[in-house]
Design a binder for these strands. Structure first.
Lengths: 205, 205, 205, 205
DNA sequence: GATGAATGAGCGTTCATTCAT
DNA sequence: GATGAATGAACGCTCATTCAT
């Protein structure tokens, strides 16, 4: 019994190590420009071993993307839920999202670079998962904003559109921060995002 | 003389036809999953002929992306410049951008899917061009908003960040419209974008 | 009648012009690294026109080689025949051969570089022609030497082997002259070739 | 340790096998008329495997030529050095050279056919190596002959030219033997070469 | 179990030749 | 006749995956 557990633990550790190194390599060069041999070499395993952990190159890639994104959404929601009031939650949402991107610059670049397309089964279902997760996340933000409307803090605009807007305002800062080599910390944009999202750009209402 | 002109016209028509068909094929399957033979067959030319118009697969791809994007930015700016006052210009900006996306759904999907990455010279310089064009466009919007600030219509927020925010609010709607199969017209979101951009989501200031 | 003659004369002039330019291009880059388009462009004719003068690329190449080599052998024999006595004839043979090589350095390099092989019909028959011409030439020298034996000037060694030896002694100098960038005139070797061929290297007999 | 040695030995055996079969195929058809698939099939390996042993088609070709030629020069020099006196050494030189050609008819034919040209890096450096090795060999013969001059056996002709002459006299016989399908053994020419090289063709001095 | 050499389908690209104009 | 755009077979090479050791 104990033996089995150790085996399982070891298996998971190796799997995680491979994913970690694969992320680095993929993030640097993109899916199509990386060979399985490279990942094997980077992670210190043999080519053959990789195929014991993952069904193939695509599966390794989609798993890596998928698990990392799960982590991102989880982190953001956890931080958001931990805040007390609506404004605090929105602030936490912006902050946690920004921080994840700052910590995972290379990974996130994969989404600017693109490198997702493909026709194969695995890639198609990855894309669908990405879309589903995206809408789940928008829905999470939506509920937050609905609460704000109910509490009389926010205007009664379509919640889904508001949520989408907030998400993409965060994305806007992130993208620019990733595109321009050296700039101030991404987190410094939090105030602006919060301000423009809440009050808009017009001078007098 | 006339002969030469007709030759040139024909050349350009064939070139355009290839680009048009290549756009369709690339949009469906992404750069790496399309073969030159497929594009040749789809556009009704032989493999060899493609190489008279374009230096290779990458050149065909980057040319297609580049020219189409040039067109998009040009259309948006033309429509924007044609409007009279600031609010009208912002409205026109949103409208023209939305309309281009509605008319070029498949092409725009390439950017959601990503499929830009690659390490080669051509691809690297395409990416740089995309980034440059993006910032040029943000700058165009920036100037528009600066004018609004000067005229006392808009708050004196950092113009670049405001421009980026507006651009990504438009992008937010577009993305969702492309992700969800059948939905109301993208243009119908114009009112919301304008509203949230100008006034924000907060109930009382 | 006269019209026809002019046509024919023009045809031959164009054909010669193509061969002349083709020689230059082939000599510089070798058969496989030259395209038909290059030859067309170099000779000032269209691709299609080339196919009116020659059946194809191989035919153009083999014709060029063949005719040039015919010329070489003809020149050498003419000069040789013009000399009076045996020793003079051998001297003339060496001289004319050396001079042809000096005048046609690039062409002759084709034979050092190789660039003859191929499996196709045309190439095979070219090779056979080269071999036949080579033996015909050796035979010419042979007759010269037989005469020398009959006249009591030369030892009664196997005439074919003697002829071959003489030919390759000339070739030896030529080769080195072509391999080493800048050297004294090839013709300056005539004395040495004659000396070693006639007297050998041994000090006392 | 032992394991590693066996691996290395196997690797070298496979590499040698590929070179051997490649030599046959190239010798028959020339560089440009052989496909990588053909060599793979002839040597009993897959296309991909060839690329584990050699960087590409050119590398395979140049390696084959280079190693074989190294072997030839080594054999000739070894045999020559083993002989006692000058005349014996010259005889051994002729003999060893002839024997190598008799044993490696197909390989040597590559040099008659030519098939060395090409513009690429690898081919250019092969050519330079061939030339360098040629002159190194001539130099080896030169030293031999210089010794003969010093010992009073040979006339004080320019040693380099004498060496070149001897080399090409051997080459003359070899070439004819290769060109004419069936003939007496090449080695039977040794006597003639020695005779003409030492004494020349003139009857009375 | 672990390995990495072996496999070969599939790719982008070239260029001799043809033939509509 | 003269042209050169169009053709597509054929090539060298890569690399995800397998499987004998």
């Amino acid at each position: 019994m104990e033996r089995l557990e150790r085996k399982e633990r070891e298996f998971n550790m190796r799997r995680a190590e491979i994913l970690k190194q694969a992320e680095k390599v993929f993030a640097t060069k993109g899916f199509h420009n990386v060979t399985v041999a490279e990942i094997a070499s980077a992670s210190g395993f043999s080519i053959g071993s990789l195929y014991q952990f993952f069904e193939g190159k695509e599966n390794l890639y989609t798993t890596m993307i998928s698990e990392k994104l799960d982590l991102m959404y989880a982190e953001i929601r956890k931080a958001t839920n931990a805040a007390k009031d609506i404004t605090g939650k929105i602030e936490a949402l912006i902050d946690a999202h920004s921080q994840f991107i700052e910590k995972n610059k290379d990974f996130c670049r994969l989404f600017i670079k693109g490198e997702n397309a493909a026709l194969s089964e695995a890639m198609t279902s990855l894309r669908q998962k990405l879309i589903d997760d995206y809408f789940k996340h928008i829905n999470f933000i939506e509920n937050l904003l609905k609460d704000g409307i109910k509490k009389g803090l926010l205007r009664a605009l379509p919640p889904h559109d508001m949520a989408s807007a907030l998400f993409h305002l965060i994305r806007a800062s992130s993208m620019e921060w990733m595109l321009v080599p050296a700039k101030e910390s991404l987190s410094s944009k939090k105030g602006f995002i919060l301000d423009i999202f809440l009050k808009g750009v017009k001078k007098y209402d």
